[in-house]
Structures are given as C-alpha cells and as structure tokens.
C-alpha cells in the first residue's frame, strides 16, 4: 500500500465521524433514555384524541394562535362536540401545569424547540 500512513489516518477519521452517534450516545450512557410524561391528574381526556394530539398538536396550536390572535375567534369545537376556549395558557396549561415534565420531555428527546415560549410564560408546576 502506498502512503499507508495517510490513508489509514484518513480512514480512521472517516470511520470515527460516521460512528459518532454510536460512541457519543454510548459515552453519555443515555441510550436507554425514554421520555416520561407526567399526565394531568384531574383530567383523562384532552381536547382531541391522544393519537391526534400526539401527531397534530402543533398544527392545532398554530390554528388556535391564528384564530385567536388574528381573527379574534376564541371558541373551538372539538371532534366530540365539546367546546373549548382557544388558549394555550387557559386551556392547555390548566391541566398540563408543568412544561418541564410534559412538553420538554418529548421535545428535548427529538430536538424540537417550539417558539411558544418566546411569548408565553412557561409553567413550572405548582
């Protein structure tokens, strides 16, 4: 092999970079970490179904923001006919009282930084 030293160093750097997720996660020791949500104690039903909320809550919140702030509409009729006030602070955060133990769990896990809290005060629980 010609220029063996350079080629092997180059290959080693490449393999090290490509396997970054493996050794980084191994070093942090958090490979088994899973988000654990603290669910509201006084309520079992969210505005919409759990599956819908899991996938689409960001769109729902975005629609609520547009409807409330831009169109002045504040009443939301859910799929099951129940009516809710379109408000993050008054409706969502009434049950989900702790951002760190609910929102942040999944958001931090998958690296999502929503800009809700640019304006809203984040609830820190009781």
């Amino acid at each position: 092999m010609h220029d063996a030293g350079k080629v092997i160093i180059g290959l080693a750097i490449f393999v090290l970079l490509i396997t970054f997720p493996i050794w980084f996660t191994l070093a942090s020791g958090k490979a088994g970490h899973r988000p654990e949500l603290e669910l509201p104690k006084n309520e079992t039903q969210c505005v919409e179904s759990k599956e819908y909320m899991k996938a689409w809550h960001m769109d729902l919140l975005n629609d609520w923001r547009d409807a409330a702030v831009r169109d002045g509409k504040r009443m939301y009729v859910a799929e099951d006919g129940k009516k809710y006030v379109m408000s993050l602070s008054l409706t969502c955060l009434k049950c989900h009282t702790n951002k760190a133990k609910f929102c942040d769990e999944c958001h931090n896990y998958v690296g999502v930084v929503p800009y809700c809290w640019d304006c809203h005060v984040d609830p820190k629980g009781d």
């Binding site: 997720p21 996660t25 942090s28 958090k30 690296g111």
Partner: peptide, 8 residues
C-alpha cells in the same frame, strides 16, 4: 443526528 444521539 437529532434522531441518532442522546442527548442531542
């Protein structure tokens, strides 16, 4: 990488 590393 956000899906491949923990923490990110």
């Amino acid at each position: 990488l956000r899906f491949f590393t923990e923490p990110i």
